[in-house]
């Protein structure tokens, strides 16, 4: 942790967290104001808790901004496979998110055996796997195994999509 000295001027993105907290706090309060009171007694009304949470988030946002302005920086998480010496590899993250979004968008239409395989293939490709044939075989096998595993083992029928009736 101590060898990870933060560069000055890098802190601007940290304010984003503060802004997010502020926005969520405001949303909570605005939403709470739309609630209707019904026979509330004393201190506790339908609005109390969300207002309180909203206030707390705004307070957090302010305190965090103060902390950042005074040079406080969040400590990036380390891990066995994490190398923090370089910057973030946004291309990989974007490809992963795209592979995941493809699955979310088409799972009901195309079915898990297809979208799951595409997601696995896409993710492993994004992470640097270039053994296309082997990867394709593993992807298809995994998605079929999990489909049957969930169906036979857990009684959960994942969407079969285009392959409905074949599986």
């Amino acid at each position: 942790m101590s060898d990870q000295v933060q560069k000055r001027g890098e802190g601007r993105s940290e304010y984003g967290v503060s802004l997010l907290l502020l926005a969520l706090g405001i949303v909570a309060i605005v939403d709470a104001l739309g609630l209707i009171e019904r026979g509330a007694r004393g201190f506790m009304t339908a609005r109390t808790v969300p207002m309180f949470v909203g206030g707390l988030l705004i307070l957090c946002a302010v305190l965090l901004a103060v902390d950042i302005a005074r040079g406080g920086r969040g400590e990036q998480e380390e891990g066995e496979d994490v190398d923090l010496s370089g910057g973030a590899d946004w291309r990989t993250v974007a490809l992963l998110a795209a592979a995941f979004a493809f699955n979310a968008a088409f799972i009901d239409r195309l079915g898990w055996p297809i979208t799951g395989a595409v997601m696995f293939f896409g993710s492993a490709y994004a992470l640097g796997n270039r053994h296309y044939v082997r990867l394709a075989v593993i992807s298809v096998a995994l998605s079929l195994v999990t489909w049957y595993g969930f169906f036979l083992g857990l009684g959960v029928k994942l969407p079969a999509g285009l392959l409905d009736g074949i599986l």
Partner: peptide, 12 residues
């Protein structure tokens, strides 16, 4: 966690 590691994957 997976996204975070992916962004900083140790290549060595």
């Amino acid at each position: 966690e997976a996204l975070w590691i992916a962004a900083h994957l140790r290549r060595a």
